[in-house]
Simulated scan of single mutants.
Amino acid sequence: MRNYNEFQKVKEETMRFMRGRYALDEMLGKHYENDCLRFRQGKKTIVAIVLHEDYYDFQIIFGKAEREKFEAQKNEFPQFIVDIYDKALTYPDGKWMLIRVDTMEAFEAVKKMILIKKRPNRKPFPKENALYGKCGHRCDLCIHFTGGTISEEFRKELEERLTRVYDNSDWSMRCSGCSTPGCYTNSCHQLKCAEEKGYADCVSCREYPCSRATVGYAEFGKKSILADDVKWGILPYVANQYGN
């Protein structure tokens, strides 16, 4: 049970890191018989994640410059990462590594390797006029919000993006925001969860942020999603926008 709970944490933190820090297309493919998400900028794959039931395999390829950076920081990595690096074969296009990740220790090491591979490139949402719901979502960026922060023209664009992300075509529900007469709270599972635990909102809960405080995907699905669809179709609907 401990390993399962830790891997659940790994899945959540992987998504927060990859989607909150990077603007990359997520392209579904295969790694032998397993489903695999390749995170791409244009045609270049930055990292691939092979999806297993109880662990992830991260496939990372280091070119010459990246190998030099890694070797300069080698003593900062756990020994098992160093061993994988040393044993990995180097081909003309780089050193290929496949790293099993089912613990937070392994994930933190892989995060550092991804940062060597590519600097974060997702620009944060403007915060000047941000409106947050009790769940930590961005009301002002929400397709349902009626507070005048998005135009009807942009709402139609959001409908197209969210339909691609969630395979749902009905976005007619409207909400005027938390604590307003027009608040759509009757079916808000996030606030019901908070109330059951004795909190007025999600963000006050000691377990926040958690996978329940999200309407966006709680873990990576077997689906290709474009970087801009992640930005407008997922990030506004997750806890603290994954730090974005």
Rank of each mutant, 00 (worst) to 15 (best):
D102W: 15
R138W: 07
W171Y: 13
E195P: 05
E196I: 12
P92F: 15
N121E: 11
C139S: 09
E207S: 13
R119D: 04
M97W: 00
G136Y: 11
F125G: 00
N129Q: 05
A109E: 05
T180V: 04
T146M: 01
R155D: 08
P120W: 13
D102G: 02
T103W: 14
A194R: 05
E128F: 09
A106E: 14
P124D: 07
E105R: 10
T146N: 00
R206A: 11
V110D: 06
P124I: 07
R100N: 05
E160S: 02
S204V: 14
E153K: 09
S204F: 06
C210L: 10
I143D: 00
E153A: 13
T146C: 00
S204L: 12
F107M: 08
L131S: 08
E195M: 09
H189D: 14
A109L: 13
P92I: 14
E159Y: 00
P126E: 08
L191Y: 13
E108G: 02
C175F: 10
C210Q: 10
F154V: 04
I99L: 14
L158T: 08
G177Y: 10
G136C: 10
D201N: 15
G94S: 11
L89A: 07
K123S: 00
C178K: 13
K112Y: 03
T146A: 01
P126C: 03
H144F: 12
K118M: 15
T163S: 09
Y208R: 12
C210P: 04
M97P: 00
K118C: 07
G147C: 08
E159Q: 01
T149N: 08
S211D: 12
K118E: 14
G94D: 07
F154C: 01
M173V: 14
R119Q: 08
L131F: 02
E153W: 01
R138H: 09
T163I: 06
R206M: 07
G216R: 15
K192I: 15
D102P: 04
G147E: 01
Y184D: 13
D102M: 11
C188I: 15
P181H: 09
C135Y: 12
I116H: 04
R174L: 04
R164L: 07
C210K: 11
T103A: 03
V203Q: 09
R155S: 13
M113P: 04
